[in-house]
Amino acid sequence: MADGTSISANLAAPARAAMAPPSGMRKFMRRRSTIAVLMAMPLILLIAGLVIWPAIYAIWLSMLNKRMTQFVGLGNYAFLLKRNTFQLVIFQSCLFAVTAVILKALLGFIVAHLMHNIPGKNQRIWRGLLLVPWVIPLALSTLSWWWLFDPSYSAFNWILNSLGFQSVPWLGVGWNARFAVIAVNVWFGTPFFMIMYLAALKSVPEQLYEAAAIDGAGPVQKLLHVTLPMMRNIIAITVLFSLIVTFADFDIVRILTAGGPQDMTHLFATYAFSVGIQSGDIPLGASVSLFMLPILAVAAFFVLRGVTRRTQEIAA
């Protein structure tokens, strides 16, 4: 009979509620959506305080004059676009981000494939080793690279010299320095692509490859018709994510070249730092760092829309 009593006890509560309709406020508090919003409030406040507020503040800052006493609207942006140095920064940032992301994606894809074919336990060791560049604090590893690129005492030039070649001023000449900065970013970012692609590769069902083999596909056709279509979402997301992070890159340029020689390696972040902090024009620095926001936002919108569409198509 214990069961019977507990059932009647449960029935009693809704019955009482039905008899006396609750007031408007109580009804509002009882709604599931209200409770959900209340429970998510700590996180909402955290995000508002740490993300939304600084973002709005940065936008506000970018619309002030240098002494931050006057509202100038989009004046800072118009001023920046007319400056040759800033045009160079736009070009360099795009060159840096696009080249580095393409190279990282390509290398990551190749390494992930090689890794995927290493059997069992050895794979774990290699995976761990290849993740190292991504795990070391970037500022520290960039210092090592700075030393490697040193014109007089570096390992690279020592090797070149012992092979009978001239020393190369790695960080002293514009295009060399640009190459060096991109190379370090690729070295640092490839493991991220590798690990994401490796996970994606592992999630492609083996039977699809078997079916393709029987259908008549060779290795290249399997790659084109099975692997790539199955990995498209991961590729899109990693490329988008990496593009955003690479556009915002600061450490490598700051440590290797500090934007030089002759501003030829400056990116948005380092230029914003140089203008805003070092030269003391905080509003102008803020407008530099906000410059890519609309473009990246639009790119993100289209990429993520494609991802959602394909997910709905593929997910069984």
Partner: peptide
């Protein structure tokens, strides 16, 4: 002889259809 040159066709337990292709393309792939 690799599978593709054996002139065989196989039906798998979990079908192994290519999820990104239409039914027509799945059948036409080979």
């Amino acid at each position: 002889v690799p599978p593709r040159d054996r002139d065989i066709a196989m039906v798998f337990q979990n079908y192994a259809l290519y999820p990104h292709m239409s039914v027509f393309d799945n059948m036409a792939f080979g």
